[in-house]
Simulated assay, not measured.
Amino acid sequence: MKSTIVTGPGSTEVIDITRPQCGPDDVLVRMRACGICGSDAFYITIGGIPPRQGHTPLGHEPAGEVVEVGAAVTGVDVGDHVVINPMAAPSGIIGNGGATGALADYLLIENAQRGKSLEVIPKHIPWEVAALNEPMAVARHGVNRCRPRPEHQVVVFGAGPIGLGATLAFKALGVRHVVVVDIVASRLAKALQIGADAVIDSSEEDVVARLIELHGEGEAMWPGKAGTDIYLDAAGAGAVVTTALAAAKAGAILGVVGVHKEPVPVDFAGIMSNEITIVGSMGYPEEIFQVTEDLVENWEKYALIVSHTIPFDKVHDALELADTPGGAGKVVVTFD
């Protein structure tokens, strides 16, 4: 079988490896789709991550078809379509420094347990949509960290895959009004398609003024604050933090799920006087299969997040496209 690995700084190869043997507690999955994450480009740039520096198997957004089931495994059958929890692998996180990666023909799920390491999904769900399960869990955890309530008014900064996933998560949780902010018109159009109540083009509009129009004026130490309850940064840009804190009313929440590559100065006087809560978000401690039900129920909306599907024999093109700023939304590698 073939597997995609990082062989050194800036270098990847598709190599031949031995197809794994399925033990009594394991499940062998034939890969059918795997999303490309921004972290994949980071791993390639630095030449891999520990514990396998320079030899990191890639791919941690998998969906596939079960081809072998160990004798001790229950609730899973050959032919089942499954989504996978890369963080549950005993040999290390799949595609994140562990022994295996999902940008490969097959993936062995060791100590397989339904609801912990994998979950069965209906067969009508397109593979490229199923592969969104992992990044949508990241988005759902970011939303959960903000503790949204139905009466809340929310703004999501960034209409990339995580921002769109967060928008769907807020709507699934019954939040009354969700605004999405971005600078790319096509992304904003997609946000409206999946259910955002309004969008703001921050390259052309005053975000704070527009939020006040949409959400009313909020109570605060100083006037000119928006009535928005939750600000979610899914963009990882310093300007987002500055804008959110400039708009935030007393008691507002700023959630950060976007990756910031540079330090961001903040107005602590405003944070203190308005008692603003800032929460970070990383991974998905409990959300990996919580999100699956909504993904299945609303798969047509989630399908809009996928911008490109590229066959595995062109995996290098997929990795390059995903790492091109503004080049794509969500790139998913598919397998015949």
Results as ranks from 00 to 15, higher is better:
A137F: 12
G48R: 01
V207N: 05
G142C: 07
T309P: 05
V180W: 00
I194W: 11
M136V: 04
E204V: 11
R210G: 03
I230S: 05
V331G: 03
E300M: 14
L188D: 08
M136H: 12
M221I: 10
F170R: 04
Q290S: 08
D233K: 04
A33I: 10
E128W: 12
G115E: 13
M282Q: 14
N85M: 09
G101R: 04
N133I: 01
A234K: 02
A137R: 06
E300K: 15
V6A: 01
V178A: 04
A246V: 01
D336F: 02
Q153P: 00
P126G: 07
G195T: 06
E61Y: 06
D197T: 09
Y302H: 15
D182W: 09
V138K: 00
G236D: 03
I93R: 08
G38F: 00
K190W: 06
F289P: 00
K116T: 14
D40R: 02
G54H: 09
E204G: 10
L245T: 03
V143Q: 09
I305W: 05
R187G: 07
P51Q: 03
T334V: 14
L58E: 00
A172F: 07
G227N: 09
H152I: 03
V67C: 11
K314T: 09
G216W: 15
P285W: 00
G97T: 11
R145N: 08
V256H: 05
H152D: 15
D197L: 11
G327E: 04
F268A: 13
A237R: 13
A191I: 07
V264T: 14
D336Y: 04
L164Y: 06
G165M: 01
R30L: 07
E13S: 11
G38N: 03
L192A: 03
A112W: 04
I49W: 01
G95W: 02
Q290M: 06
Y231P: 01
M136C: 11
V156F: 05
R145D: 02
C22S: 10
E286W: 10
V333C: 09
A104M: 08
P135K: 09
R147Y: 08
N144L: 12
L232R: 04
S307E: 06
A169E: 13
V83G: 02
I49L: 00
D206F: 12
A244T: 11
S202R: 14
V306Y: 04
C22R: 04
G38K: 03
I305D: 05
R210F: 07
D105A: 11
F42I: 03
G79Y: 02
M1C: 08
D317R: 09
